[in-house]
Design a protein around this nucleic acid. Structure first.
Length: 959
RNA sequence: GCGGGAGUCGCCCAGCCUGGUCAAAGGCGUAGGGCUUAGGACCCUAUCUCUUAGGAGUUCGUGGGUUCAAAUCCCACCUCCCGCACCA
């Protein structure tokens, strides 16, 4: 039967809406506060976004059915720069973007025109995303919705950031950023052409003395200063003479330009040709030795300072340039100097001899200094020396130190002695701003930072993490690690949407800093939205009183002009819902948002309001590969809902992967799920609730199995192992139902509708958090009154598990299995099957052995001795084989079954088989099955098989 | 490099936390059968090796160890993937 998903989903969404089922206010019940990272509305959400929200919704719905008063709210994060960047691109008529908006996102053309205003973009996608969330059936309390640029929210952020500053957690300092010189703005990935992240490294500038001048050379390996034998200058380049903070430097034009942004004072004094420098000498800092400047074509003016120090023992470029120079025609005077140069080896590395550069150049078969393989050769030498090398005795006080460690030590030593400086440079040049101009690195020296490097703060956060539930458990160590390396983090920027820094209105609170404690704001936004309070009254005193229980009610009321009753009502609401019981997010937010979320909570709130749980999920793949605009494999969520229905999408996302794994979304999984649900729907539609007075063995069994399933599913969801839970409900349980149907059909029973109704009602109830719409529909078809989403979660009670029933069905299955195996091996067509169960004596021995094994004794010799020493069982010595096999039988069973058997000592195998095996056996194998106990007097045993019978392992004769 | 995760029977993937129901679920593929005018869809059966009695042998990256018992616990190694920041 085909399901009209859309019709059913609309029907139930309307009912939830009418009943206000998900509007949550404080009441007498215990609460759960479930939150998810709110979306950034710069595009419609796709299936990947849907995963996190769906997981959280399942969580919320599950708790609701378990009797909690669940608050699941949602907001929209307008703060940030990407939307601003988009607006600029729309204004610039960027074809790629407009094409994406039009075709990928289906934005109407008139709307796109309005997108030159950033707020219009945010508003549009806000509504788009919200509509998708509603269509997905998320059980959100929409009365609390807000955006992060609402005036009231800004008041809240001001309070947050002021509070942090009062606690001395916000500091000012300098910081390098990617920078557009034209826009006078920092650039991030979203602001560049081709979406490249500006990536920069720190070079050490070693300052060589050249008369009155300083010639700085840029290097990543300051330790090689001990191996410098000459400098490389490109004779083609015209260098600049500049004054840098009162020193006279000679550097390339490009270098001088870069330094203008690096917090240095630069004045231009003149020029000098590279060729003029050739043959002249400079002195090496610290050592005071004179070395010569030589020509090299590999030296580029745009890299570093345009002059390079030469370490031919360890740098392949330098070694090769020297070789080239020796081969070329140069003035005799210079030639003498060149020939006098010997590489100085300063690093000892396993696998290398005196000159690693030479060895590597030869290994790579380098032809000349413009050979492209030189980059790889350099990488290889640097890599090996950096991690495996040690400084030799000619490096003075650094002798014996590992290179990896020496790098920083020597850098600091050089800078301290004014022999060196720092140059920051983009590594992935050219990086172009969307305005077209080339970006640089800029040092901002009035930047505001959250001091996440603070030890006490970290300690507090660690304490919080230690007491938190982190799901899945594997991700916990990652949080500890992040806390470890976290340093100061810029918390303000100069453009974008958001809240201004209260004490420095040039800055806007950065988007990862204004989204860390906003869960608290959900308890207030409700009152803002219904106009109970207005943003102007949200002062420091108000927040201090409501959130921190600080200050005097009457005073607060006086200042805010809000009545004491209302203030207290809001405060009560906050303290009812807080702390956050569960925070959901994708794993990409682990090293930033989720960690900051904890850091900011512990900084601002008392321990009683620290969050309880974090749930982290992996991303969604589309047919096995990452979703990306360039691949064109992004499926907008709303389109998917239209095409397949919300419930199938929810189920497909959840069934395809466990929490932290990437979920692979594909059409097969969707249609598989649809089929499954359609079948379930059809079956359930036929069932009627009816009472069955006498339960048969298989009825008791399936009811027990249902209890087991309830237990498993409940435990799995508590740990957010939703894939496992859903799999149990939909698939794993199916094999139990199949067995049940087999048993029932063998007996030609017609009175099972009631049992199936009961069993499936539990299944549908448990399915309801996962596929809420269709579950309501089936619930209604099953004849239940009321909504399944507000019904009680099926209760697990161990007393409803009939251990004997479970064990005896297993017994029955194993006999049928054995018969099938024999038939398969022997390939005979059975005429008659005879079963012999073990006698009382064997049963007694069996239980004695079972007891011993359960109590831990598994040694055959000891068990045998103990059996013989007992009068009742001593006869067993005639049949040691039986004891050995029995031990093996028992050991190959799960421990629960062993215990069950211990509990049901009086289980009568023969009686059970006479009642239950004949029918199903006839059905399966199409022959009569006869059952004896081996001690029966009238036994039919032509092949003498009966004596092989063991308890729970009857002997079988097939003829 | 630092940190994290993973390696399972042709492929994808479950099981590992909590050792015994594990020759190991499910899906795909393959083979046979049913249904159908045919195809598709769907359903059934088989799918490590050997075996004419329910059995045995060899398997879960490699090599060790603990245990009566290891895919599961411990140690070492190999290979692959992800993150390392001012960006939502």
């Amino acid at each position: 039967m085909k399901i009209n998903w859309k019709e059913i989903e609309t029907k139930w969404r309307e009912k939830w809406n009418e009943n206000k089922d998900f509007e949550t206010d404080p009441n007498d019940k215990p609460k759960k506060f479930i939150t998810v990272a709110y979306p950034y509305p710069n595009s419609p959400q796709h299936i990947g976004h849907g995963r996190t929200y769906t997981l959280a919704d399942v969580h919320a719905r599950f708790y609701r059915m378990q009797g909690f008063n669940v608050l699941f709210p949602m907001g929209f994060h307008y703060t940030g720069t990407p939307i601003l960047g988009m607006a600029k691109r729309v204004e610039a008529n960027d074809k790629e973007l407009i094409n994406n908006l039009k075709n990928l996102y289906d934005v109407p053309e008139e709307t796109i025109k309005e997108f030159v205003e950033p707020i219009k973009i945010a508003n549009y996608f806000h509504q788009e995303i919200k509509a998708g969330m509603v269509e997905m059936g998320y059980s959100i309390d929409w009365r609390r919705e807000f955006t992060t640029i609402d005036p009231a929210y800004s008041k809240f952020i001001e309070w947050q950031i002021n509070t942090l500053r009062e606690k001395n957690l916000i500091i000012q300092g300098s910081h390098p950023v990617g920078w557009c010189p034209k826009d006078q703005n920092p650039v991030s990935q979203h602001d560049t052409l081709g979406d490249v992240e500006p990536d920069f490294t720190e070079y050490i500038l070693i300052k060589f003395n050249f008369g009155d001048y300083v010639i700085p050379t840029a290097t990543l390996r300051p330790e090689t200063i001990f191996g410098v034998v000459n400098l490389w200058v490109n004779p083609e380049i015209i260098y600049k003479k500049v004054t840098v903070n009162n020193e006279k430097w000679i550097v390339s034009k490009e270098c001088a330009y870069k330094m203008e942004f690096l917090d240095k004072k630069i004045t231009y004094d003149g020029e000098i040709r590279g060729s003029e420098l050739i043959g002249k000498t400079v002195t090496v800092p610290h050592r005071g030795e004179s070395i010569v400047m030589l020509p090299a074509s590999f030296v580029k003016s745009e890299t570093g300072t345009g002059i390079v120090m030469s370490v031919p023992a360890h740098a392949p470029f330098d070694y090769q340039a020297l070789v080239d120079l020796k081969k070329s025609k140069i003035e005799p005077e210079l030639s003498i100097k060149v020939n006098a140069i010997t590489p100085i080896s300063i690093i000892e590395t396993e696998g290398y001899g005196e000159n690693p550069a030479k060895e590597t150049v030869e290994k790579f078969g380098i032809l000349n200094q413009n050979d492209s393989n030189l980059d790889d050769a350099t990488k290889e030498v640097y890599g090996k020396e950096f991690y495996g090398g040690k400084l030799k005795s000619n490096t003075e006080q650094f002798a014996g130190i590992k290179v990896a460690y020496a790098k920083d030590t020597i850098k600091e030593w050089l800078i301290k002695n004014k022999h060196a400086d720092i140059l920051l440079e983009l590594t992935n040049t050219p990086v172009k701003c969307r305005c077209g101009s080339e970006c640089v690195v800029k040092v901002l020296n009035n930047q505001w930072f959250l001091n996440y490097g603070d030890k006490d703060w970290k300690e507090l956060a660690t304490k919080c993490f230690d007491s938190m539930n982190i799901l899945p458990q594997e991700i916990r160590s990652e949080f500890n690690y992040v806390i470890g390396w976290l340093r100061e983090r810029a918390c303000a920027r100069q453009h974008g949407l958001g809240t201004k820094l209260p004490w420095d209105k040039d800055w806007i609170v950065e988007s990862l800093s204004d989204s860390v404690i906003y869960m608290a704001y959900y308890t207030i936004s409700k009152f803002v939205n219904d106009k109970t309070i207005v943003s102007n009254s949200l002062t420091k005193e108000f927040f201090d009183y409501v959130f921190l229980d600080e200050g005097d009610l009457d005073k607060v009321s006086g200042i805010t002009k809000i009545s004491p009753d209302i203030i207290n009502k809001i405060k009560k609401e906050f303290h009812y819902f807080y702390p956050v019981d569960s925070r959901h997010s994708g794993r990409d937010l682990v090293p930033n948002h989720l960690t900051f979320f904890v850091l900011n909570h512990v900084a601002i709130f008392p321990q009683s309001n620290w969050p309880h749980e974090i749930v982290v999920n992996g991303s969604v793949l589309m047919n096995g590969s990452k979703m990306s605009k360039s691949m064109g494999n992004i499926i907008p969520l709303r389109k998917a809902i239209t095409d397949y229905g919300a419930d199938p999408i929810r189920l497909a996302i959840i069934i395809s992967a466990e929490l932290l794994q990437d979920a692979d979304f594909n059409m097969e999984s969707i249609s598989g799920i649809q089929n499954k649900i359609e079948t379930l729907f059809e079956e359930c539609s036929k069932l009627k609730s009816e009472k069955l007075d006498i339960l048969e063995a298989e009825d008791r069994w399936i009811k027990s199995k249902t209890q087991n399933m309830i237990s498993h599913v409940t435990i799995a969801i508590e740990k957010m192992r939703l894939r496992e839970a859903l799999h149990d409900i939909l698939f794993a349980f199916e094999s139990d139902l199949n067995w049940y149907m087999k048993r029932v059909n063998a007996k030609n029973r017609k009175n099972i509708s009631g049992i199936l109704h009961e069993v499936n009602s539990s299944r549908i109830a448990m399915l309801s958090p996962f596929a809420p719409h269709i579950a309501e529909e089936i619930w209604e078809k099953l004849g239940h009154l009321g909504m399944v989403s507000t019904s009680r979660w099926p209760e697990f009670s161990p007393s409803n598990i009939d251990a004997t029933a479970i064990q005896s069905e297993e017994y029955l299955k194993s006999i049928i299995d054995d018969i099938a195996k024999i038939l398969k091996v022997t390939k005979i067509t059975p005429q008659k099957i005879t079963i012999y169960t073990a006698d009382l004596f064997k049963s007694k021995v069996y239980h004695t052995i079972l007891e011993k094994i359960v109590s831990g004794q598994t040694n055959m010799g000891i068990i045998m001795k103990e059996l013989i020493s007992d009068l009742d069982t001593q006869e067993v010595k005639k049949n040691p084989d039986f004891v050995q096999k029995t031990i093996k039988d028992i050991l190959s069973e799960p421990t629960e079954i062993r215990r069950t058997k211990l509990e049901s000592k009086n289980f009568n195998e023969k009686n059970f088989l006479v009642n239950e095996l004949a029918g199903i056996g006839k059905r399966e194998f199409n022959v009569e099955i006869q059952i004896f106990s081996e001690s029966d007097s009238n036994i039919y045993d032509p092949k003498n098989k009966a004596k092989h019978a063991r308890p729970f392992k009857p002997a079988i004769l097939i003829e």
